[in-house]
Design a protein around this nucleic acid. Sequence first.
DNA 1: GTGAAAGCGCTAACAT
DNA 2: ATGTTAGCGCTTTCAC
Lengths: 345, 345
Amino acid sequence: MNLKDLADQLNLSPTTVSRALNGYPEVSEVTRARVEDAARRYNYRPNTQAKRLATGRAMAIGHVIPISTQHEIVNPVFADFIAGAGEVYARSGYDLLMTIVPDEDQDRIYREIRSKRNVDGCIVHSPKMAEPRIGLLRELGLPFVVHGRATLETGPYSWVDMNNIRAFHRATEFLIDLGHRRIALINGIETMDFAHRRRLGFEQALAARGVQADPGLMASGEMTEAQGYHEAMAMLAGPQRPTAFLTSSLLSAMGVRRALGDLGLVLGRDVSIVTHDDDLSYLRNGGDEPIFTATRSSVRDAGRRCARLLLRQIELGKAAVPKPVGELLEAPLIVGASTGPAPGV
Amino acid sequence: MNLKDLADQLNLSPTTVSRALNGYPEVSEVTRARVEDAARRYNYRPNTQAKRLATGRAMAIGHVIPISTQHEIVNPVFADFIAGAGEVYARSGYDLLMTIVPDEDQDRIYREIRSKRNVDGCIVHSPKMAEPRIGLLRELGLPFVVHGRATLETGPYSWVDMNNIRAFHRATEFLIDLGHRRIALINGIETMDFAHRRRLGFEQALAARGVQADPGLMASGEMTEAQGYHEAMAMLAGPQRPTAFLTSSLLSAMGVRRALGDLGLVLGRDVSIVTHDDDLSYLRNGGDEPIFTATRSSVRDAGRRCARLLLRQIELGKAAVPKPVGELLEAPLIVGASTGPAPGV
DNA sequence: GTGAAAGCGCTAACAT
DNA sequence: ATGTTAGCGCTTTCAC
């Protein structure tokens, strides 16, 4: 059943039917009702491709997921983010087009996407502090929203980001309030913007409370269980061992916990762990076991917001050049059984 | 630059240019070379939408990801699977179209996808033992490949699956060989086909070696850290505690490990853990720390195979009705530091 | 308020 | 081997 068939059934022209279905004002309400009714009865769905060709709009958003060839890791955050974004797209009639590319091919892929014209805009994932994709997309004239920020980028661009500085500032303060002075930071790779900001928040909080930062207690790496384990083992080996760990990821935190086990240390008594991690959504949010401090479904929310922002930008784009907007989200601070006062306090 | 422009530049008809670019045999090699050269120079890219409309092929594959509304979990396996599939699509010029839907809306979504005609086929994720989507897709005439199987489905269909029965059979045998007799199974939800099969493998191995299966040592649930922890705590509470755990997921295994810590039991000495988990890809495959038995990048491989199978089916579909095919993949057995002989052996 | 006609950029059947 | 013509199914002027 296509537009013409439907029009024939109704003894109307395809034009009128199209107008009725797309909410144009010049159709009489009675015809509109008739058309809508018939469309429903015949289960009519407009052919997406035809619509796209005619309007010149792809009605699709691209998500280009970089896949590092060095460490075969698909960032688990993507799943939740995309779930949120997908929700919004679905409601607005957009498709989500996903492309998985090796890190080094990104440039080529974006250009290709652009010239094939099969997306109206895209989301930039995992920005680095210096992010070449922003300049590229600007040059290509493809609307985009960055999930995160790129500190070293000078031009304007739209983004949605978690307030990483504040989250780590608060988490650090929380530990300081419990009497901890030797606090270790197990961070992500610090060329990534989020990791850079997390470190800033950590350092600022220490400085604000007059606690001396110890470079030996700051590690930056790949946010795996193994990383957490190794860094914790190393840091806990010396005489000046940390009394608390602040980690960037749930996996790292689990690694730290394993290290504690191996060393016969008790979590929450000898050593505390606080983690800011969007991955917590993998654990059942049963509420029965708040082991970690974490930002729960915040990633999904970020996905929704990114999507909304981008769609608004695209819709507006037809009329005026939209001006870039940023949205800063706060991470909830959830405190659980993994923390306690510093030993001797 | 579109086809017509390019043709004008070359003093050829759009038809010839199209034929040259699409590898039709009737073009002379010299014209083809001229055309290809010009296309490259002008950076010509065919408009995807137009091509799709003209050919009636969407050049896209749909992935419908069910998102359970009850437990807010996005199965982390999807990320890796999709990375594999995406790789194949990219090479073949297909797009990957992702839709995230609440479990209960699936029916509607598939019908919509079908009538909007924006995918040529789709992948069915996470099949249950009784899987209604298979019948639906068959009825809709939309080509599909199932990642996994649906035991209770009687009709033919194409699938790619991990050999879950064998994986768990071998893992169980491995533990029996180490002298373990009281082996606990921490499984996924057993209406899911993979979980059902894993249990089968476990039970078959016990039976084959004359070990009595204990219903008290079999748990089925959501594969979270909390599940592993709770089930392990419960099972280890009694006097007849298990000496080994076989878990379906890395998270569950981590939960079990935490329980051991809380109870002062030593991993690999008092209790062994073996886990079959595709999630291990989240951990850096540094090789320095084989804590678990696992199927590593196997999920990504499954993604690739599913995609290839589906594309083949679609290409063939034009000519003949393709007959369903199944592919059974073996999971590697990786053994690490988390296992040891049964106490007293 | 409705319809006829042209066109979006490509492919494919039918010439030549 | 190349060109002509007619669509694919929709939107969008423009005319009534």
